[in-house]
Design a protein around this nucleic acid. Structure first.
Lengths: 207, 207
DNA sequence: CACAGAATCGGACCGCGGTCCGCTTAGTCT
DNA sequence: AGACTAAGCGGACCGCGGTCCGATTCTGTG
């Protein structure tokens, strides 16, 4: 019989490593909101954390990943909200409403951290990032519930393309739309995507 | 009385400048499809064109802009297609069909030059690039025709977010969807966005 | 407590996209 | 033709994200 596999693979993190991780996250968070995400270089962060650049990259791999790590708390809160939260967003409301609420919640998060999130979207849709995967799955399940015949796998991705920090910055900064208007657009897009008749197919009041 | 302002501001391009522009475009095109867009550095292009790096950037401003320039022919052809082309894409077909055909045509173009287009999308939706602006306007007009009450300004942008090279590469490369399936998703999204009743409101056979 | 081995550190280093500025050259006016 | 001027040129230079590897700890063991 082998040893039981340890559930937390990174549990054996050395004390100094843990300390440095915390220092880095702390410095990054501070610098990001002091100077704006795009004006902070990785060298600066390493410096402010009192740590070598190599350490920084060893810990987080890339700028995008660091940004994700800094935002992980907020991402987790959102995720918690649509998995176990109160009805408009969490289970209990009709799927269509949940989908709309999800988009609005995500847009709120984007609005709050747009620059940082944009940095985290370096390559494509934050591919392979757990938060994105979770969101995608959530949207996919809701879509499947609303219209079992649709290509929910694909549509979840294309729908989520409308909830990107890059797009948001463009819409708000260049085109001049405000948050409420963007939310309204999302609602409209969701309502359209789901045929009105099919929408009521699964409208039990509770999950 | 002053001299008449010349209508074409850049007409006064010096002979050597024109020659170099051509050399650069030519070298870029060749290298891009020999080695794949992402494996070609700007230094390489300048080198292959027998031109200094400064010249390259003076001419094209950025890597993204160079990519656009290389693709301008194809972009122009697409644009020509939806402005003056044959009915499914050009004027004459019902607006909804035109919108679907537009997306499919754009997806074809993306599929043909995905890497290069991805390079051209460096910052946000190719913001301020003429081709993107033209596409956006086209989509906006079609949307307005289909449903005059909708927020066509915003929806044109969010819809176009689904026709991005970055998204396409992700859908095809990471998720493994093929072109046909992606096109089907686009159709579905368009059909949803436009209420079925309003869709027939403007269905004259000719423009 | 001393030791050994490995995990971690850190800063020199790389190639990249992009900028700058002194030199060259193509067009123009006499 | 000759000279004048501004457009054009090119390569040294910059800061950035990211990598590498020798030096430096930390931690379990005798």
């Amino acid at each position: 019989m082998q040893d039981l596999p340890v559930i937390q693979p990174q549990a054996a993190e050395r004390a100094d490593a843990a300390r440095n991780r915390e220092r880095i996250l702390c410095a990054a968070r501070r610098l990001f909101d002091e100077k704006g995400a795009r004006c902070v270089s990785m060298d600066e962060i390493a410096d402010a954390a009192g740590v070598g650049k190599g350490t920084l990259f060893r810990r987080f791999g890339s700028r995008a990943a660091l940004a994700h790590a800094v935002l992980s708390e907020d991402e987790a809160r959102l995720q918690e909200g649509f998995i176990r939260g109160a009805p408009p967003l969490g289970p209990g409301a009709p799927a269509r409403e949940r989908l709309i609420a999800f988009g609005e919640a995500r847009l709120d998060l984007i609005a709050a951290h747009s620059e940082l999130l944009a940095a985290a979207e370096a390559a494509g849709p934050n591919l392979d990032s757990p938060p994105y995967a979770a969101s995608r799955l959530h949207v996919e399940l809701l879509l499947r519930e609303l219209d079992p015949g649709c290509d929910s796998e694909l549509l979840s991705d294309t729908l989520l393309a409308g909830l990107t920090a890059g797009l948001f910055l463009y819409l708000r900064g260049v085109r001049g739309f405000d948050l409420a208007r963007i939310k309204e657009g999302w609602r409209r897009q969701v309502e359209g995507l789901v045929p009105a008749d099919a929408a009521d197919a699964a409208e039990p009041a509770l999950s």
